[in-house]
């Protein structure tokens, strides 16, 4: 893609919700000239096999991401705090999507 193409066909991130009660999950990205086309393309590219009941699209340039270089700084301390994991109690039967 040329720079002009990149400007008129920006990248969009696609989130699909696969069922009621579940949350939207990131499934990939695509190119589209505007939000309407992004939604239609998302439908055609990512829900062909009945994957979803709802789609979100967000311009990739609007996503604020953490710096990969900050990985240890941000996330390493949590690795040692096992008491934050729900391992010390039993999940009641019949509770889904926990």
């Amino acid at each position: 893609m040329s720079d002009a193409d990149r400007a008129s066909w920006p990248l969009w991130e696609v989130f699909v919700r696969s069922g009621h009660g579940l949350s939207h999950k990131h499934v990939g990205s695509l190119h589209a000239t505007d939000a309407t086309m992004a939604l239609q393309n998302a439908r055609d590219v990512y829900t062909r096999r009945n994957e979803g009941v709802s789609v979100w699209v967000v311009k990739s340039s609007d996503v604020v991401a953490s710096d990969p270089g900050d990985r240890d700084l941000l996330f390493a301390p949590a690795q040692e705090k096992t008491f934050r994991h729900p391992t010390y109690y039993t999940v009641p039967e019949g509770v889904k999507h926990l």
Binding site: L30, H31, N41, D44, V45
Partner: peptide
């Protein structure tokens, strides 16, 4: 013209 449209037309 683009891969997204390619899939859409094929659909």
């Amino acid at each position: 013209p683009i891969v997204e449209e390619d899939l859409a037309l094929t659909n």
